[in-house]
């Protein structure tokens, strides 16, 4: 996983294709519609620095931007996923100062001065996967994979918090991460494999 490095990716490919098919419609609309009037009370974008995966990122953001949108749309880190965007599914889970939080219910501006860790920041720099990432692969702990970055971030926190001592404990403390493919039994198995490895490491 690259850290927002431009290059060929499924996401860039889709974005480019979508833009090329939309351009005709947009040009047509632009010719007829009046330009958007300036806001009566213009609000300057906020210039802020977010520390993401150990790196300072300078961003210029509308105050409404959530941490999730800042990560995905502005910092190019699309690992964190937008599921419900209302704090009900856990797909957007990231760490702030080592504690798991929901990036969809956090304004990016509130995340200044905090250490943010996303799924992109979990593996070692040489590409060696975090024990939890490896355990998810070993136990086939996903099907479609959409909830997986959030599941893994949450699972790492679950172990660090000391809440991975039994199956019921894991289920209770992972309940904030929904998986519509219902890979739950395999997720529990993956966490049980990674927990002792994390303690050793």
């Amino acid at each position: 996983m690259t850290d927002g490095t431009p290059g060929f990716s499924r996401r860039n490919f889709l974005a480019t294709s979508a833009a090329s098919t939309m351009s005709v419609a947009l040009l047509d609309r632009g010719a007829r519609a009046a330009p958007t009037p300036a806001q009566a009370n213009p609000r300057e974008p906020l210039k802020l620095t977010l520390k993401i995966n150990g790196r300072d990122r300078e961003l210029s953001l509308d105050p409404r931007t959530t941490l999730l949108d800042a990560l995905r749309e502005h910092a190019g880190l699309t690992g964190s996923k937008k599921g419900c965007d209302h704090g009900q599914c856990g797909a957007c889970t990231v760490m702030m100062d080592g504690r798991r939080i929901l990036s969809c219910l956090t304004f990016a501006a509130s995340a200044q001065d905090h250490d943010i860790t996303t799924i992109e920041g979990l593996a070692q720099t040489d590409g060696t996967l975090h024990p939890m990432q490896q355990a998810f692969i070993d136990h086939d702990a996903f099907q479609c994979g959409y909830c997986t970055p959030g599941q893994i971030m949450s699972a790492v926190a679950c172990v660090k918090e000391g809440h991975a001592n039994s199956d019921p404990d894991i289920r209770e403390y992972m309940s904030g991460n929904l998986c519509r493919c219902a890979a739950y039994p395999n997720i529990v198995d993956a966490i049980k494999q990674a927990a002792p490895q994390m303690k050793e490491g």
């Binding site: 798991r100 939080i101 929901l102 949450s154 679950c158």
Partner: peptide, 9 residues
């Protein structure tokens, strides 16, 4: 109440 993430927030 809520989830572990929300309780942290």
């Amino acid at each position: 109440a809520a989830s572990a993430q929300i309780r942290n927030m």
